[in-house]
Structures are given as structure tokens and as C-alpha cells.
């Protein structure tokens, strides 16, 4: 800096002034509503906070209780089940759809638009519609089952079926969104690869596995990461489809839903804070593993 003339010095002071001024609203907002809350949650997870925000320091008791809490373990297990069912199912379907829509097919843009509709639909409304479809007495699914001579199933009221039923709704709701992102990734692949492959006589399926799939891995990685994190935090569908009053509430409850119920229904804020911290730790761990593993399968060279 010292080597430069006076003029650049003034302009660099001005630049600093505008730099700080223009980030000020964002930094203020982030500090109040994001950075402070992170510290507060860590702090509260070591306190015995109830409904009125009073509470004494209680060391690691919240965590001890948490790790001895069978409901928490069940919620964690459910969350893993959601991730293991929803993420691969959604990835596979959206990748197939993206690849098909990349083909020379009539009505491509119409297909794209229709597939995208669930992505702009309110989660609460989606859940409401599916709750009606799944309804144990009059839902269309059960009506069809009965017409075919099967017994009725209380999809959302039974422990065995509630979680898979929620998974179906989540996959249904997210395929179109991810398909759009993957399609953009596929369309970014240079045409020369396909032309070269066509000259070599490679068919559509071979082109998909030898060109499209490896070249789309960066986008696939982005979709995988965002959906892993997103699915870990599934809330809307579970909250609406399997409420606390349901017989299957425990077997469909995710960690975030359990957090929500502790924080806002049972007013156990210190305990809820500990759940939030555990959730953060898990998501950090998953992301770290993914970042490490990506170099074995993500292809970054153009």
C-alpha cells in the first residue's frame, strides 16, 4: 500500500468506506439472527431452559438425557431411514428424467413444466392432498385397494407404513426440482463428446454411461449434498402427515420434528437446543465425509 501515490490512498479509503457500508445491513442482520443464535443455542444446550427462558447452568445433563432418550434414538433412526430412502430414490428418478428430457423428444418443454409443478407447490398443501389420498377410510388409494379385493391400510396411522408413505410424498415433491438442476448440468456438456461417440458407434445407453454420467457428476454432487442436508431436516411433510396425535407419530418423527416438539410444544428449550447441536454435528460430519469422498467419483475436468 505504501508504495502507491496519495490519490490511490484516498480512493482505497473510499473503497473501504463503501465496502463496510454496503455489507453493514447484511452483517448486522446475520449477527443478530444467525451468529448470535448459534452461540445462544450452544449456551442454552448446557442450561435447563423451560418455557419462560429462565434456567440454570446444568452442565452436560441435557446431553446425558438426550443420549439416554429412546425417543431421540428412534427419531435419529427414522431420520436416517428418510435419508436412505428419499435421497437415492429421488436422485435416480430425477437423473433418469433429466436424461430422457435431454433426448430429442417432442413436447420437451411441456414435460419440463409439468414435472416442475410440485416444486413450486406449498409443502403444507402437498401434505394435505396426500393425507386425503392416503386416508384410511375414504382415501382413493384404499378405495382402489378394496376394489381389487385387498384389505384397507391406514397408511399414515400404522407404524410400518407411515414412514414409507412420507417418503413417497417427499420424493414426489422433489424429483422435478432436482431434475431441472441435473438437466441444466447435462445440457452444459459439450456436444463434441457425443459427436465423437456417435462416430465410434456408441448408442444412447452407452453414451449415457460413458459421457453423460461422468460429466454430470459435479452437478450430481451438488444435488446430492443439498438433498442430504435438506432431507435430514425434513419437517413440513412429517409435521402435517403424521401429527403428534397419530398412533404412528413416534415411528415417523424425524430429529427436526422432535426438536420442534421439544422447543415449541413441550417447552423444553434447553433440551431442544441440545438436539439442534447434535443435528448440526451430524450434518457437518456428513458434509465433511462427502467432501472427502467426492474426489473418487466427481469429475471436475472439463
Amino acid at each position: 500500500m505504501g508504495k502507491r501515490g496519495k490519490k490511490t490512498n484516498i480512493s482505497s479509503i473510499k473503497e473501504r468506506f463503501w465496502g463496510y457500508t454496503m455489507i453493514a445491513p447484511l452483517v448486522t442482520g446475520l449477527s443478530v439472527f444467525y451468529f448470535y443464535p448459534v452461540i445462544k443455542v450452544f449456551f442454552d444446550s448446557f442450561r435447563d431452559v423451560g418455557a419462560f427462558n429462565q434456567g440454570d447452568w446444568c452442565g452436560i445433563r441435557n446431553y446425558q438425557e438426550l443420549f439416554a432418550d429412546p425417543v431421540m434414538w428412534q427419531a435419529l433412526g427414522n431420520t436416517l431411514k428418510y435419508v436412505v430412502i428419499i435421497v437415492p430414490g429421488m436422485l435416480l428418478l430425477s437423473l433418469i428424467l433429466a436424461a430422457l428430457l435431454n433426448m430429442n423428444i417432442k413436447g420437451r418443454s411441456l414435460f419440463r413444466v409439468i414435472y416442475f409443478i410440485p416444486a413450486i407447490t406449498m409443502g403444507a398443501a402437498v401434505a394435505m392432498i396426500w393425507k386425503w389420498i392416503y386416508n384410511g377410510d375414504y382415501g382413493i388409494l384404499n378405495q382402489i385397494l378394496q376394489l381389487c379385493g385387498f384389505e384397507k391400510i391406514r397408511f399414515l396411522g400404522e407404524e410400518a407404513t407411515a414412514l414409507p408413505a412420507v417418503c413417497v410424498v417427499c420424493i414426489w415433491g422433489s424429483v422435478g426440482y432436482n431434475m431441472i438442476i441435473l438437466l441444466a448440468g447435462i445440457q452444459g456438456i459439450s456436444k463434441t463428446y457425443y459427436e465423437a461417440a456417435a462416430i465410434d458407434g456408441a448408442g444412447g445407453i452407452r453414451q449415457f454411461f460413458n459421457i453423460t454420467l461422468p460429466m454430470v457428476t459435479p452437478t450430481l454432487f451438488f444435488v446430492l449434498i443439498t438433498n442430504l442436508i435438506g432431507t435430514f431436516q425434513t419437517f413440513d411433510a412429517i409435521y402435517m402427515l403424521v401429527p403428534n396425535t397419530s398412533m404412528a407419530a413416534g415411528s415417523a418423527q424425524s430429529l427436526v420434528v422432535y426438536f420442534y416438539r421439544n422447543a415449541f410444544s413441550y417447552s423444553r428449550r434447553g433440551y431442544a437446543s441440545a438436539i439442534a447441536v447434535v443435528l448440526l454435528a451430524i450434518i457437518m460430519a456428513i458434509t465433511a465425509v462427502q467432501l472427502k469422498v467426492q474426489k473418487y467419483w466427481v469429475n471436475y475436468d472439463e
Binding site: 439472527f33 444467525y34 448470535y36 443464535p37 448459534v38 445462544k40 443455542v41 442454552d44 442436508i229 435430514f232 431436516q233 427436526v256 426438536f259 420442534y260 422447543a263 428449550r269 431442544a272 437446543s273 439442534a276 447441536v277 443435528l279 448440526l280 450434518i283 457437518m284 458434509t287
Partner: peptide, 11 residues
């Protein structure tokens, strides 16, 4: 990177 449920209670 941080899940929104971490912020929501203090917010």
C-alpha cells in the same frame, strides 16, 4: 452449512 433449526429457537 448450518441447519435452520439451529437458528430458529433463538430467533
Amino acid at each position: 452449512m448450518i441447519p435452520s433449526s439451529l437458528f430458529i429457537l433463538p430467533q
